[in-house]
Structures are given as structure tokens and as C-alpha cells.
Design a protein around this nucleic acid. Sequence first.
DNA 1: CGCGCGATTGAGTAATTTCAAATCTAGTGG
DNA 2: CCACTAGATTTGAAATTACTCAATCGCGCG
Lengths: 196, 196
Amino acid sequence: MQPTPSIENYVRKYVDLNDEELAHFASAFKEVKVKKRQFLIQPNFVARHRYFVLKGAVRAYVVAEDDQDNTIQLAIEEWWISDYNSYMFQQPASMFVMAVEDSTLLQISFEDEQRLKASNYKYETFFRMIAERAAAFMQRRVITSLTMSAEQRYDLLIEKYPEMANRFPQYVIASYLGMTTEFLSRIRKQKLRSKG
Amino acid sequence: MQPTPSIENYVRKYVDLNDEELAHFASAFKEVKVKKRQFLIQPNFVARHRYFVLKGAVRAYVVAEDDQDNTIQLAIEEWWISDYNSYMFQQPASMFVMAVEDSTLLQISFEDEQRLKASNYKYETFFRMIAERAAAFMQRRVITSLTMSAEQRYDLLIEKYPEMANRFPQYVIASYLGMTTEFLSRIRKQKLRSKG
DNA sequence: CGCGCGATTGAGTAATTTCAAATCTAGTGG
DNA sequence: CCACTAGATTTGAAATTACTCAATCGCGCG
């Protein structure tokens, strides 16, 4: 597995910061450790932070009327996670965000993020870029859900994010892909059969 | 119907610009008129612009293997539209973007947008904010597609964006909601029956 | 006034879900 | 370190939801 990522290396992929800026940027984040099954965000509470995963695996999900959970986001090392509707607009959350493994995260509060962005142009650019990437990512997900069958969506996940399939239990992957655990199980069985 | 929107009024909803800045911002856009059925973006070509709708209705869609079109975005007055994956990362488009009515749009090129953002902090903030809104919007769409039935998705669209249902033909609405024209027709019929 | 696109209808079908039960697995306490 | 148990996965059969195909209808616009 890769070495533990750092927020400094990450932010440098997007904007060119000098050492002082890097240190300033990083100082807005606080490291938090969470145990498996611990909640970071719960419905009806305002999401006060967004999280950058240093180590571990986290998922965000909503619980529908029929008690099924639907996974909205998955995050492993170097991914961000939060209830963005709640975080960005500081409104009550609709999601649970929960650690799936013992995890180490960097959290930034909404207020500190605002301060960062106000203090330096480049930070604003950085957050603009990750928001654009998030929008593009979500749009690709809309496209796959509109155009592909359950099996195709699973194949695509395996192809593009093979790591994810190993780090999260099957029922989480299934609910992320918009199908039932049982159906994903059948899809996988059929693949085993045809591949050997 | 509301008066024709302006980019000046729109940008002011997000950032506080003085008259000079407003004029500068607006000068990066060019007004274009398109006829019904005219294409703004086509697959395999790089999307060079994003568009702000002043008047009219536009949709973005992908064509799947089986020749079905799947509507990815709808835009009427005061909405933006493009193939964002293509526009933001300047890669070949996968979508058609087509006028559904004769329309008047403001277009900005990728390069001019970069220049704008580099020239003034506030413009960067503006684009960051609309990217965040786009991400949040797309995420809500993912949530509805994961958690709601075809009928519920239609009800939600009618509730939140009643205008859309009037401006676009039924088959476009159906493909936006991830169902067939026939099935949407049946849903509507059933509603008529129960309401009278 | 008729052409062509969009909407509707019906019948049959495919994809996916539901429910219930059996089996496997990993984590926990003794 | 093992046994136990709760959670996770698998399996089967029946039920649902939504789709396909084909035909018909409606109607706006040239």
C-alpha cells in the first residue's frame, strides 16, 4: 500500500504554494482518529467539517423510508468526505458519515475554510478546483446510473476504483451502485463461473 | 414569465462587485442565438464554452449503445449548461448539447474564464461557488436516483422545478429522470385518474 | 390538410427486488 | 486460543418495477 498521504502533497497537486503557505494551509486542519463504526456526521445536525482521509475508509449514506441505506460517497486515502449539502450551505445534514475502518482523518471546519479562502487567493483556487472535480465526478455517476445496467456499473467500479471493492463490504458497494446486496452477489457468482 | 435575466444580476447574487468589475466580468461573455435543434456541443469535440441561458431551453444528453438518449442536464433561464467534464478538463466531450427552443445564450470560453479568474479574486470566488452548487445539485440527483421510485422522482421534479416539466417535451423529462417515455406516460395517466 | 414527431396504449418480457432461509466469517469474551 | 455470535454473504423462488415492441392516436406547424 502507498505511504500515508499528506495534505501538503495533496494541495500541491492543484496549486503552487511556497513553504510558508503550505504550513499555513495545513495548520487549518486538525488530525482526528476514529474507530470503526464511529459517526462523523449524523442527520439533522449541521456538518461542521469536511474530512480528508489520511488512513482508513469512510462512507456517507442516507437511510430511506424502507430502512435501506444508500451509500452516497465512499472515501479512502486521499479522498474527501462530508455531507456537502450540509457542509457547504451549513444546513442540517441528511446523511450519516461513518468510519468503516479505524481511520485517521484531517478535519477542517467550515469557518476555518472560509478564513483560508479569504486569506489567500491560491486557497480559493484550490477549493474551486476540488469543487469542480467533485461536480464532474458526480456527473459521471449520474451518467452511469442513467445509461448502464447493474452489472456494467459494477464492472466500471472494479475497473476504475479496484481498491474500493476491497476496502468496503459487499453490501456497501451494492448500495453505492444502486442495487441490492443479493443482486450483486449473483452478479459476482456469475462472473466466477464464466472466468473459472 | 420573469423578465430576461442578466449575467450582471446573476453574478451579484454570489459576490459583491462594483460597476467596473461588473462590466469587466460581463465583457468576457458573448451573446449567441441558436435555433431549436441546433447543437452547441457534440461528442468527440472539446467543449470550448460554457453557456448561461438568457432565454430559451437547452438540454445535454448522451447517446447510449442502444441508441437511447439520456438527458444529463436541463437548462432554462438563469441556468448554466455545458459538458462539464469536457469543458473543465478540456477533453473530448461525450455529450450533445442542443437547443430545445430558439434560445439566447451567453457563452464564455475556457480561456476567457481562466483569465477572468486570474484577474480578480472575486471572480474566482464566484466560480468556486457555482461549482459547489453544481456538485451539491448533482449529489442530490444521485440521492434521488438511489432512493426513489420512478414516480417519486417525477413528483419531486414537478415539486421543485415545475417550470421544467412545461418547457421540455415529455420524452426529455423521462430520460432526465431515468425512465422511458412510455412509463412516464403511464405515471401521468394514473395521476389524472386519481385526481380527476 | 397532411406529415411527422411526440404521446398514449396494450401485451409480453427483462431486470432487479423482496422475502426467507441457509451458510459463511470475523470479531469478542471467556 | 477457541467457541460463540452477530453481521455479512449466498441461494432460491416469487413478486414488482420498469422496459420493449408495435400499433395507434393527436396535433402543431409548414
